[in-house]
């Protein structure tokens, strides 16, 4: 079994977001780029599955749509333990375009299990994984919180409202994963960092594809009113305010 993990690079969660070009883009100066948290957990789980030889995972590849400047993110994934990487040399202009590029490469390279994080922490679109599956005409299983092997074939746990199901699908398929997939992201070891430099990164040029959406502008969330403090000796006042002022209880 060959596993592909799709990775996006996003500003570190604690980044203070600033706008540029008349609020039509994000000011990237000083931004620390990291692997999207869900993608990092996906990669971790893929590597754990490969570690257990009984599962028969031959390789774990990462794929990324982005310009050469996103190479450090790819090297980080290789340092964590991915065997090789694919970079599609294009700017990920929207989900449809990005998924189209990924699907094209997956068709050429062939993978059995494709893992995508539920969303990227920058655009919060929750779209690429499902789109890749649809472009390829293969099954997708969403809200996956666990992947394991039983008798050589993968079993997925997916969250449903107020519960969970165990699901089997025929490969190839796309697993769209979320909380629970791995406990902690795997950290790159010194040896991993050294070997990452020489691991292969295959670069594909993009194929012609449409973007269906464009960002006309950004705005900051409306500021919240200042916090109103209640005397800790009289917490009953809070209940009164929630009932009579906010009217939420």
């Amino acid at each position: 079994m060959k596993i592909l993990v799709c990775i996006s690079n996003v500003p570190d969660t604690t980044t203070k977001i600033k706008f540029a070009d008349g609020n039509t883009s994000i000011d990237t100066a000083g931004i620390q780029w990291v692997i999207n948290p869900w993608d990092e957990l996906s990669l971790t789980r893929a590597l754990e599955l490969k570690d257990d030889q009984a599962n028969g995972v031959k390789s774990v590849t990462v794929a990324h749509v982005g310009p050469a400047s996103s190479e450090p993110t790819i090297r980080k994934a290789l340092a964590i333990g991915a065997d090789d990487a694919i970079r599609i040399n294009a700017s990920a202009s929207d989900a449809y375009y990005t998924a189209f590029q990924l699907a094209e490469v997956i068709r050429k390279e062939g993978f059995d299990m494709i893992i995508c994080g539920i969303e990227s922490s920058d655009f919060n679109g929750s779209a690429v994984g499902g789109m890749v599956a649809e472009f390829l005409g293969i099954p997708s299983v969403s809200s996956v919180s666990g992947i394991r092997f039983e008798g050589g074939s993968p079993l997925l746990t997916r969250e449903i409202d107020g519960g969970r199901e165990t699901v089997k699908v025929t490969a190839p398929f796309v697993a769209i994963v979320q909380k629970g997939i791995a406990k902690e992201p795997r950290i790159a070891s010194m040896r991993g960092i050294m070997t990452a430099r020489t691991k292969p990164v295959k670069v594909y040029e993009p194929v012609a594809a449409d973007s269906l959406t464009t960002v006309a502008g950004f705005e900051k969330p409306a500021p919240r009113a200042a916090c109103r403090y209640i005397d800790p000796e009289n917490p009953a006042q809070l209940i009164d305010l929630l009932q009579n002022e906010a009217k939420v209880i």
């Binding site: 919060n124 679109g125 779209a127 499902g130 649809e134 969403s142 809200s143 269906l212 959406t213």
Partner: peptide, 21 residues
């Protein structure tokens, strides 16, 4: 959960852009 599972697939099938969330 179901909206996130279905909207992207439908987007490709109908070539319809998504505004998510």
């Amino acid at each position: 959960i179901s909206g996130k599972a279905l909207a992207p697939r439908l987007s490709v099938r109908l070539k319809a852009g998504i505004g998510a969330g």
